[in-house]
Design a protein around this nucleic acid. Structure first.
Lengths: 123, 123
DNA sequence: ATTGATGGTTACCAAAAGGTGCCTACTCCC
DNA sequence: GGGAGTAGGCACCTTTTGGTAACCATCAAT
């Protein structure tokens, strides 16, 4: 179904919002990852939701899905597209802004933030 | 209640996501606005949700609320804070990225986009 | 006295997003 | 033949988010 937005910000938000999408994009920003890698890095996500979020990102052209391995124990690998990489700059800025803001107020905390997007700067 | 995020992107998203927040921020980006101004510009938002979204933005330090007028027909004015203004750069980039993306694919459209955030560039 | 503008609240609903649990299917390994 | 690993589907439920409709209070104008 065709999605309508009233401005570009909403369009962008429609693509990157989702409970796990920022984290997925962060991990995929480093290198391509297999499904099981992602599950290890996001231990509390369910298989269903992981597949769902990845499918949405794929549908929006942010990542691609490769199946390698002729027979069963399939190796499914997800990887950023050029479009996905073009989001990097924005994500880094959002990350810095958010981290800075969280450091200012007591009612906002960033846990588990080992590196995060800031690391993407070191490319 | 204290909000936890795993990275800065989520923190930022937590502040700017909301069905009407991008539009509200866009209108407030130009100049302070009264409640009735905002209602005129967003004819389909309900009073409840308008108040709700504005209160959340206020709670996150993005806007301030001023009541002027000693007696009743109160004049309530909302205005970006410095923090809110510091979001501008990010919003403009998100807007440009989203507009560009929408122009590439047929299943994404931006309606009612007269100016939007791009106009904020002309400061 | 009633209507309208102003800005807001409350109780109740509906839709969307996410989560749980259980199932499939294949193959390798012991 | 019974796991374990791999990737995912499906039915169902809960939580979050947004929407509707009715209401309050105040003052000005008719």
């Amino acid at each position: 179904m065709k999605k309508s937005y009233t401005n570009g910000v909403e369009a962008t938000l429609g693509i990157i919002s989702g409970k796990w999408k920022p984290q997925l994009l962060c991990h995929l920003g480093n290198r391509p990852q297999r499904t099981c890698d992602l599950r290890q890095k996001l231990p509390t996500i369910s298989q269903k939701v992981l597949t769902q979020q990845l499918r949405e990102l794929e549908g929006d052209g942010i990542i691609t899905r490769h199946i390698s391995g002729d027979r069963a124990p399939f190796k499914v690998t997800y990887e950023l597209t050029d479009l996905g990489r073009s989001l990097g700059e924005i994500l880094v800025q959002m990350s810095l802004w958010g981290e800075h803001r969280a450091s200012q107020v007591p009612d906002m905390e960033i846990v588990d933030g080992h590196g995060g997007f800031s690391r993407l700067l070191e490319n």
